[in-house]
Design a binder for these strands. Structure first.
Lengths: 346, 346
DNA sequence: TTGTACGCGTTATCAA
DNA sequence: TTGATAACGCGTACAA
């Protein structure tokens, strides 16, 4: 059996309370060098490690953080996870990853478990407006920060990228190439991510006095399938767009796949752009134009913020926003029809 | 504050021990319907839920399972995770995912944490020969099952696919296309996965009386980078192979990327095949020939096995082996040089 | 500078 | 059919 604090106390010839206070650096404790040595020796001899369950029962703390992510298969999250994990590790917290699969029932189950296991804080990568999760966390008064996919709120904490300007950069890029018929495959509009990018898309079109049609905006889940289906819809329109900005890389790949089933070529007939710069979009043909965000740091900063909250310190800022960066690759080019139309005009 | 068992006891007018025994279906308990009702009422009125930390302290159980995976960014693991999570959920266990990043230090940290948090069992997707992890788990006498990437051992438990025959299927396919110069990018030979596939490769060449050269076998990590670098090496050979079988899809994509940097074409000049049928290999150009394994079920069955072990039941079999299936796509075709050589012969 | 005593919330053993 | 009591391993207020 593993040694308990009593065993150490016996071996060191002192009482458990001294051991506990010494090991936890109790500032009100003054202790002889001699007893320190005795304790240290006993600890290392017995290989004593405090039982964290018992500690948890006493202190209501666990030094455990949970991160809830909607889809572990989405490459977007892997760097984020690395960053969050590194921050946790460096601050002596244990990060457990939970996959909600965008499924309310599982999501519920997982929050309950996390609360039950006394997680000190929760990292939410899948916040939806009106989700039970945030309500539950608020009620349980457990700190949480939303990351990447967030919801609007004045009181919450979040780490995200500047979706509006990111979307603007993409659309400006498409406009500068000469596109006028620019469609948008939006994400679930119950998320800030999707509404922000949609807003950036709209704003940029308006600023550039380009019409947009409701038909050119299709809402879809943040998945490969979602992008695939949405693109199918766009391809059925009588007036097919010459460029499509997709809310995220995974659906962008789905869109690409849908296009490839037709005679239509990317970028010759349709320019296509995503968002996030997942490694995959650099491996497909054509390589996708997209927006890069520093996910590793998003995860790292977010976890640091969460840890501050757990330690009951106020973070300097409640909302950290990362700057997006446009990565132009092969999937965007000037529209072919542009030339055709000009010829017609003559 | 949350209601404790004492509160329920007070409200119901009985002692905590009855509540506990009733709620835990103690078979030795005989109890009046009347008191049952009282308890039920008190429980629902106070919304009582047992504190799982306190339970853990008493029972040394946590109903928590951990899964350690080497690289959360590797698409191979996402279906596996889903399966494992579903099995855990269906059996009322909580599955926490831990990302070791193929890093010994983190791996160590994570096992320690999992043990400290009293995980009931561990699911190991990143077993390496001589890893500290398995030693530690053995010593802690905590049940574990190795999945996908396993190590040889008589006593352990594992769920994997038939690597030898999977590799054979690929190589037979290449041979049937007419290839004779078939190289293999192997995974880390500290894993059964890699040695099994290497063995299948060797065996099939020998059975078909085809020479293989040591130069044609390159060991590499199970990563995109790993495959990229290994392929570079193969491309530097004086006698470049006409076909390459890569141990896994992620390195296969790396290999593809390396080839694309040259004038060499896939499959015209080099046929390329992977293993695992990650969704990504169906999105690149050319779409990769590969081996499909039922990862979801691998995860599900593996978790079921682990849960049996946790419940101290002997699983029917210690090693579950899944059948692989060959998926032929665009990245493999007959060798061009075959024809050239025949022309020479004339 | 150190020890005593209690409680965290539960389960298990025994007695009633 | 139920209750009293101890124990799990630790932290902490208070006393010494």
């Amino acid at each position: 059996m593993r040694a308990t604090i009593k065993d150490v106390a016996n071996l060191a010839g002192v009482t458990p309370s001294i051991i506990s206070r010494y090991l936890n650096n109790d500032p009100t404790l003054s202790i002889k060098e001699e007893t320190k040595d005795k304790i240290n020796k006993a600890v290392s001899e017995l290989k004593y490690k405090p039982n964290s369950i018992a500690q948890g029962l006493r202190t209501k703390k666990s030094r455990m953080l949970g991160i809830m992510i909607p889809d572990i298969g989405n490459p977007t999250f892997s760097d984020l996870l690395k960053g969050a994990q590194d921050a946790a590790y460096n601050n002596d917290f244990f990060l457990v990853i939970c996959n909600t699969e965008e499924n309310n029932e599982k999501e519920d189950y997982i929050v309950n478990m996390l609360l039950e296991k006394n997680a000190d804080g929760i990292f939410l990568a899948s916040a939806y407006i009106n989700s039970n999760v945030t309500k539950k966390l608020d009620k349980a008064k457990i700190p949480y920060v939303m990351v990447n996919r967030t919801i609007r709120s004045e009181k919450g904490y979040s780490v995200s990228c500047d979706n509006i300007s990111g979307a603007s950069m993409v659309v400006e890029h498409l406009i500068s190439l000469g596109h006028k018929k620019i469609a948008h495959i939006a994400g679930s509009l119950f998320t800030d991510t999707a509404t922000g990018r949609l807003q950036g898309y709209r704003k940029t079109l308006i600023d550039n006095r380009i019409d947009y049609f409701p038909d050119y905006i299709v809402e879809a889940p943040f998945s490969f399938e979602g992008g695939y289906i949405a693109m199918k819809k766009l391809l059925e329109l009588k007036d097919i767009p010459t460029a499509v900005f997709v809310v995220s890389d995974l659906p962008a790949l789905g869109a690409l796949s849908a296009i490839k089933e037709t005679n239509i070529l990317v970028p010759d007939d349709i320019s296509l752009a995503g968002f996030n710069n997942n490694w995959v979009v650099n491996q497909v043909t054509p390589r996708l134009t997209t927006i890069e965000t520093d996910f590793y740091n998003m995860g790292y900063k977010g976890a640091e913020m969460l840890i501050q909250l757990v330690n009951e310190n106020q973070p300097e800022q409640a909302h950290i926003v990362f700057k997006p960066k446009l990565i132009v690759r092969e999937s965007t080019s000037p529209p072919k029809q542009e030339k055709a139309m000009k010829t017609d005009d003559i």
